[in-house]
Amino acid sequence: MTFTSIALICQADEFFDIRNPSILLLVGFLILISAIFIVSYQAHNLKRLKYTTGLQAQIIKQQSQNAKGIITADERERQRIAGDLHDGVGQLLSATRMNLDTLFERLKLTDPENSELADKAMAMVDESCREVRTIAHQMMPDVLLKAGLAFALRDFVNKISSDRLKVSLEVSGLENRLQNNVELVLYRVIQETVNNVLKHANASSLDIQLMRDEGEVSITIEDNGRGFSTAEKEQFEGIGLKNIVTRVTYLKGTVDISSSPGKGTLVAILIPIL
C-alpha cells in the first residue's frame, strides 16, 4: 500500500513538472474543451436570440392576425346585420306601408279622427323605413363595396354636412381603388373620427383630406371645435380612439393627434400602401 502511494506521489511530482509533455497535453485538452464550450455556448446564445426574435415576430404576427380576425369578423357581422335590415325589416316595412295604403283606401275613412290616425300610422312606418335605411347604411354602405372609398366618403359627407357644420372633403390620387380591406378600414376610421367630432367637438367646420401618394395614404381630419388639453387627452382617447388605433395598427399605419383647448383637433393618419 505504501509502495503504491509513494509511486503515486512520484508520479504527481513528475506530472506537475512543466517540462512533462503530458501536462502540455492536458493544458491543450483543457483549452480545447473550453473553446468547444465557448463556441457551443455562443451558438446556443445566438440560437436563443434568434428564438426570441422569432418569438417576437411570431407575437407581432399573432397580434396582427388577431386584429385582422377581429376586424374581418366585425366587418362580416356589420355586413350581415345591414343585409338583414335591408332584406328583412326594410322589405317588411315597405310591404306593410303598401298594405296599409290599400287598406285605408278600402276602408274609406270618413271620421276625421280616424283618417288622422291612419295618416299618423303611415307616417310612422315611413319614419321607420328611413331609420332602417340610415342604420343599414351606417352598418355597411352599399356604395363603399360597389363604387369605392372616394364615392362612399363623398356620400357620407353629404349626409352629415349641414348649416351648423360645414364639412369639406378633398380626395386626391384615388382614381384607382385600394385593396378591399384597406378601403373598409379607412372608411371606418374616418367614420369613427368624424362621429367623435360630431359628438364632442361642437365644431362649425370640418376638413377631411385623403391623399394617396407614392407608397402611402394620408388622412387628415381637422375641426375647429373646442379641442382638448393634454390633461384631457386620456379621456378623449378613451372615446372611440382605441378602435381607431387598433384599425390603423392593423394596416401598419400611425395615428397622430394634436389639439389644444379652443383650437380644434387634428387627427392625422398615415398608412403605408404597397
Binding site: 401618394d213 394620408s218 387628415t220 400611425t254 394634436s258 392625422a268 398615415l270
Partner: peptide, 12 residues
C-alpha cells in the same frame, strides 16, 4: 405632431 404629419400637411 410628428414630422411625417407635417410632411403630409406640406404635401396637401
Amino acid at each position: 405632431i410628428s414630422e411625417r404629419t407635417v410632411e403630409t400637411h406640406r404635401k396637401n
